[in-house]
Design a protein around this nucleic acid. Structure first.
Lengths: 149, 149
DNA sequence: AGACAATACATGAGTTACTCAAGCTTCTAG
DNA sequence: CTAGAAGCTTGAGTAACTCATGTATTGTCT
């Protein structure tokens, strides 16, 4: 038994590694699909990722929270937000109770673009190929996984 | 019914959108987990992504194929490969039959680093929190989804 | 109330990953 | 044998991102 095999022995589950690969593959496919349509929407990938987080049906999020969800520095979100404002797709609003906080809210145009974005990726998503039952199973499993983290 | 709602009406499945979000969330969590350990392994994220693809148990891949899997330009893989060679983790070998093609192969050190990388993310993966039965179900569902793309 | 630390965002500089265009070598087709 | 295509490399340029710093606001401790 050589050293490499010994280390392999440590790896908890072969199947967990395979699952990881699958998730990353899917994520890559979706991202690439999105890229293809971004030119038409005149968005960059990083801006699109921000738009994706800006749900119109919930309370607007502080820039700091958005940075956390994007796994990047808050200063980066400042730049992305400025780009969205320039294009008239969102606007920064002061937080009603905390003067330090800025929240980012989509405009009507922004909401429209967001729907197009979702449409773009959801329509051709590999996950859309599953039937309803499978989708529900998958949703439950992923939900459990995410919650356990 | 306003315009935004009309567009919402087009979105095939609400649940498919939710699934998309889950996959992207998981992918983000895994990536962030990986980042945390990359400093210790002295790797950058992009180099690590390449190492991830360099399976020692299959035929070595041409740089072009690797570029396709990474969704990036071949010239970028040239750079990443050079970094791997500098660190002695991989070496470019000419293809036995086609003189134009270079394949990338991990060295013994490279294989060791790759196992550490897998260990790093697999051990703490949210997916590792599921039990064996759930993992198998999930694997089957994801496999079907990926195949349908 | 007043001082001090902490939080949230903004700004500027610098780094890195990446793309694109052009060039070289090798393979393939007529 | 020549023309074209395919694969990799090189160099230049760009965009995204981080880090350090600055400013305004909030919370806390006495």
């Amino acid at each position: 038994m050589n050293e490499a095999q010994a280390i392999v022995g440590f790896v908890a589950d072969e199947i967990a590694v395979a699952l990881l690969g699958q998730v990353m593959t899917l994520s890559g496919q979706v991202t690439e699909r999105m890229r293809a349509g971004l030119e038409r929407l005149d968005l960059t990938e990083s801006v699109a990722n921000l738009v994706w987080l800006l749900r119109p049906d919930t309370d607007p999020l502080p820039l700091r929270k958005l940075a956390a969800q994007l796994h990047c520095d808050p200063s980066n979100v400042t730049l992305l937000s400025a780009k969205l404002e320039e294009r008239g797709l969102a606007e920064r609003r002061p937080h009603p109770r905390d003067g330090r906080v800025r929240t980012l809210v989509l405009t009507a145009d922004g909401r429209r673009v967001r729907e197009e974005l979702i449409e773009l990726v959801a329509r051709h998503s590999p996950l859309a190929g599953l039937d309803k039952t499978e989708q529900k199973q998958l949703h439950a499993l992923l939900d459990k996984a995410i919650a356990s983290a």
